[in-house]
Nucleic acid binder design. Sequence first.
DNA 1: CTGGATCCACGTGGATACTG
DNA 2: CAGTATCCACGTGGATCCAG
Lengths: 146, 146
Amino acid sequence: MTESLPLSIPAPQRTCTISEGTEELVREMLVRIGDRWSLRVIETLSEEGSFRFTRLRERLDGVSQKMLTQTLRQLERDGLVERQVFAEVPPRVDYRLTPLGEELGETLCGLWMWAERHLCDVQQAREAFDGQAAPAPRETAQAVTG
Amino acid sequence: MTESLPLSIPAPQRTCTISEGTEELVREMLVRIGDRWSLRVIETLSEEGSFRFTRLRERLDGVSQKMLTQTLRQLERDGLVERQVFAEVPPRVDYRLTPLGEELGETLCGLWMWAERHLCDVQQAREAFDGQAAPAPRETAQAVTG
DNA sequence: CTGGATCCACGTGGATACTG
DNA sequence: CAGTATCCACGTGGATCCAG
């Protein structure tokens, strides 16, 4: 298990060497894009470029106005999404991914493919876990004798 | 970003659109490992192999007993973490990553490196966003004169 | 059309007490 | 030592109303 440290980081290139903050940021980003809508926003914008508010909301069928606004604000704050406001009547606002957001989307692709590869594995693991939870007290189910 | 990817990912140009269930699973996994402790559990187990409950809890200083148990259960349910119960007194339980969990950890490495590369970018974006929120009504900051 | 503000339901995480 | 159960605080997401 020491042949490859998956989560250890080789060598930072940037001047901001904050190994501490990196873990924090990773978790923050996971939480951020793991919320109900961010991932779909990134996916949609990544595939089809620019979207205006209402059009985007239609695409993410089920999202409330508040949540879409909130989601877009958070993504914008992290520099992942860019807002372009047109001084028109009625108001028009376009949203699109920044280069930073696009790169994150590409990075997410690795996770995407992991999920695709192991979708069945996870589902089976869950079924097995849930299945053995009911019939037996599982605490002693696979107890090892020495 | 093909040169820095740890996995043999074929350089996606855009978000890879796959099946419905995959997106759901991706979001689930993001939420799961994005919670307060899962990422650290995976990281710790990935780096140092097997851990028993209390030892692991010491490592994740700050985690409550309930949350560690809950976190481990969820990871176990998804087939990412394996439990080994010893029928001893006092009780002993060892936790370690499954191959599936290790592969996920490796996949997460891509995200990790993204965060490392763009830690400054994100921080600056946040400062810029928060900074312009107060002084100006930002809605008309980059408005287009149509 | 865009989106801020408010009220509310619910899930999650933490502290504590107790069990095997 | 490992784990369950309970109570509680808080954040998050949704519905709705209101404003530019």
